[in-house]
Design a protein around this nucleic acid. Structure first.
Length: 698
RNA sequence: GCGGAAAUGGCGGAACGGCAGACGCGACGGUCUUAAAAACCGUUGGGGAGACCCGUGCGGGUUCGAAUCCCGCUUUCCGCACCA
């Protein structure tokens, strides 16, 4: 604080007066209103919009303040920069708050948004609030419904009875991506499979295209995670006929080992299991199936677990050599991958080898390594390396290196109609149905006469009714509102019932970047002209935790919207930067229970937003994240004070001297600093950028 | 197991083929003060009185020169995983 003695000197840095003054001026002059300007190049910097939980935490600041700084830099170097903010306003926490406190989700959400908007203002962002998007408003979610209808028309949205992941705590189904280690991504409860009729988006249609990252600059690790997630496997589909003339399809990546297939293994849930089980094996098989069903997915998929299985009594014929092979079931074969059945080649696959040894099944070597002879009787592990095909009819002698054998065998399978080349993906279709209240109603009507009827576009939005029972019952809360449920069929006018499931909130965030361009546009999801001017997004910033959900769904949506003819590019986000996580001072993840949470509001009240922002840029390499340091922020405070006194004192006592050697050195350093800072900020190396500036001030 | 990232002072981290440790924190010494805090100035990888010597997870290699490039390990973090 300034004392009486110091009044002759320039005033000390007072962040509160300065920030208040300028934030008021920015608001009054509408400084950050973005308009089209053909004279300047455009730059669309999008930062992931927050969920309105009620409070901005330090992680929000860490994500947004440096993003804001990067966007500002672009603006100050001549670009017409769009940096919008909004709120991801649908979702489970609002429903939980409603149940807990008796507040309507809408009231709770909108109050949180009002508070967080003010917190974001206190951060001093250059956000253009006139473009704010709030996804729980009908003017927004109407277009989720519109997209759903377009996808439905194109066969990209479909309803299917499928085994789905069910969270007993949240009383809802989850998307494949939302199950982490067999547990609900949100509440951590163990989930299980259940058969339900649900809505899906056919994201697998785009699996191949989603593997192509051409033309976008994304971090290697995000691309790797997505590749991994999509999980492409090249191989062949081959049909094994049973002795009762049923066909069991298997997928294999090693068709060149077909001659070594000595048994088949089906998933316990495989539809043919019941029919193919012989009377003498029935009791054992049924017991095993029951046991597998009781076990959680975690137990079933544990790597260390010993393989178990049961012979079901039937045999199939190996289509390449006519060999009679027994059919088994085992819980390590998953119904959800491939065809739910495998051919087992114990000589050349370690899992099959272990299984064969345990149950004393035959092992036939069909790939011989160079200069070595494998003896099935004495082998201790499967041979998975390259070699030459043997005991494989006309393919004997074919080398396996470079995929040669695989290609030739696939060609032959195709010719002789025994099978065909196939590519399998780990990626599943996106399950979008949720048995929840606080989401976008799915615009479908069920009519006894006409069946599934999409709501006509001119009847959108299907508005979420205000009165519904939120308490989870396992059914959608919307079921409890007869006024909503009972309707008339748009086709025949007869009585009909509305779909009561709502959409996954990831639908909202899959296209919000387009809505910012014309947030109140009512002729379509977005103004095509505005989209043509601003999109795709030049720079996207956000958390790495969205690598396999939001960032895949968004890419899918953009490709699907392109195929509707609304966009003419393939990728929504050209350049992606992901920030790390700010940990507590104890190097642990911040959590209330650990008591290591840093409250940004308190810091801003004490030090001002600029000091907090600068420190978050300095504390760690932005992409890495790191531990918070309550001591370290004092260094930034000193730095800002030094800059302030340097500038104000120089202004108070200007010196006009001819350029001496010192001034020349300073000039040189100034230019070196400008150059270094320019390079650093372009790469989001904010910590070294600040180090440069400190050096310069020193 | 597969894929990705990483390992550098007391701490967070710079440098990414050319003086290792920028910048910040902390620590120590000093100026100011009756005193303290703040602020400011200086010192701060280890060893040695010193010229010097040793130092970037471990082991090799390439190079006039390696924290940086190559090969082989170890450990940590992240994602995926009985994926057929």
């Amino acid at each position: 604080m300034a004392t009486a003695k110091q009044t002759a000197r320039p005033e000390r840095y007072n962040p509160h007066a300065i920030e208040k003054k300028w934030q008021e001026i920015w608001a009054a002059t509408d400084l950050y209103r973005v308009t089209d300007d053909p004279n300047r190049p455009k730059w669309y910097h999008l930062t992931m919009y927050p969920y309105p939980s009620g409070n901005l935490h330090i992680g929000h600041w860490y994500a947004m303040a440096p993003s804001d700084a990067a966007a500002r830099y672009k603006r100050m170097s001549g670009y017409n920069v769009l940096f919008p903010l909004g709120f991801d306003a649908f979702g489970l926490p609002a429903e939980n708050a409603a149940i807990k406190h008796g507040i309507h989700p809408y009231t709770w959400t909108m109050a949180n948004i009002a508070h967080m908007r003010e917190q974001l203002r206190s951060m001093g962002t250059m956000a253009d609030w006139s473009r704010e998007v709030v996804t729980c408003l009908p003017e927004y979610y109407r277009w989720n419904q519109w997209f759903f209808l377009q996808f439905y028309k194109k066969g990209l949205a479909y309803r299917a009875n499928a085994p789905v992941w069910w969270c007993p705590q949240c009383q809802t189904v989850l998307a494949f991506e939302q199950v982490v280690d067999g547990r609900c991504e949100r509440c951590g409860t163990e989930v299980y499979r259940r058969e339900l009729e649900q809505w899906f988006f056919r994201i697998t249609n785009y699996a191949e295209e989603l593997l192509d990252f051409g033309g976008i600059q994304w971090p290697e690790r995000v691309k790797a995670m997505q590749r991994n997630w999509i999980g492409r496997s090249e191989g062949a589909r081959v049909a094994f006929k049973t002795e009762t003339n049923r066909s069991i399809e298997v997928f294999t990546t090693r068709p060149d080992t077909l001659w070594g297939a000595t048994f088949l293994v089906l998933a316990p849930e495989h539809p043919l299991v019941n029919e193919l089980t012989t009377p003498e094996q029935r009791e054992q098989v049924e017991q095993y199936v029951l046991q597998a069903r009781r076990e959680s997915e975690i137990e079933r998929t544990a790597v260390t677990r010993e393989k178990t299985g049961v012979f079901i009594g039937s045999y199939a014929i190996n289509p390449v050599n006519g060999a009679r092979v027994p059919i088994w079931i085992a819980d390590y074969v998953l119904m959800s991958y491939g065809t739910g059945a495998i051919m087992a080649v114990p000589a050349h696959d370690q899992r099959d080898f272990a299984f064969a040894r345990k149950y004393d099944l035959p092992i036939i070597v069909v790939i011989e390594p160079e200069g070595e002879e494998l003896d099935p009787a004495t082998m201790t592990e499967a041979f998975a390396g390259d070699g030459v095909m043997i005991q494989s009819g006309q393919f004997n002698g074919t080398p396996t290196a470079g995929g040669e054998a695989v290609r030739r065998v696939i060609a032959w399978l195709d010719e002789t109609d025994r099978g065909h080349g196939e590519i399998t993906y780990r990626l599943r279709d996106w399950l979008i149905s949720r048995q929840r209240y606080w989401g976008t109603p799915i615009p479908i009507v069920y009519c006894e006469a006409c069946g599934i009827v999409p709501v006509p576009e001119d009847q959108l939005p299907v508005v979420l009714p205000e009165n519904a029972e939120f308490t989870p019952t396992g059914q959608s809360p919307l079921v409890t509102d007869p006024e909503f449920v009972n309707t008339t069929c748009p086709g025949c006018g007869g009585p009909a019932k509305r779909e009561t499931d709502t959409m996954d909130t990831f639908v909202d965030s899959s296209w919000y970047q387009y809505r910012y361009l014309s947030p109140h546009f009512d002729q379509g999801p977005f103004d095509l002209e505005a989209a043509a001017r601003w999109t795709p997004v030049d720079q996207y910033t956000g958390g790495i935790e969205h690598a396999t959900m939001h960032l895949i769904y968004s890419r899918f949506f953009t490709k699907a919207i392109r195929d509707l003819g609304l966009l003419d590019f393939n990728e929504p986000f050209l350049r992606l930067m992901t920030q790390g996580i700010i940990l507590g001072e104890d190097m642990e993840k911040m959590s209330k229970s650990r008591g290591n949470v840093v409250d940004p509001d308190a810091l801003v009240a004490q030090l001002g937003a600029d000091v907090v922002r600068l420190f978050l840029m300095f504390v760690a390499p932005w992409e890495m994240g790191g531990p918070w340091s309550s001591r370290g922020i004092a260094g930034i405070e000193r730095f800002v004070n030094r800059v302030w006194s340097l500038v104000t004192e120089t202004a108070a006592n200007p010196v006009n001297q001819p350029e001496d050697a010192g001034a020349q050195r300073l000039r040189r350093l100034t230019h070196r600093t400008i150059r270094a800072v320019t390079e650093d900020i372009a790469e989001f190396h904010f910590n070294t950028m600040l180090a440069r500036l400190m050096e310069f001030v020193n």
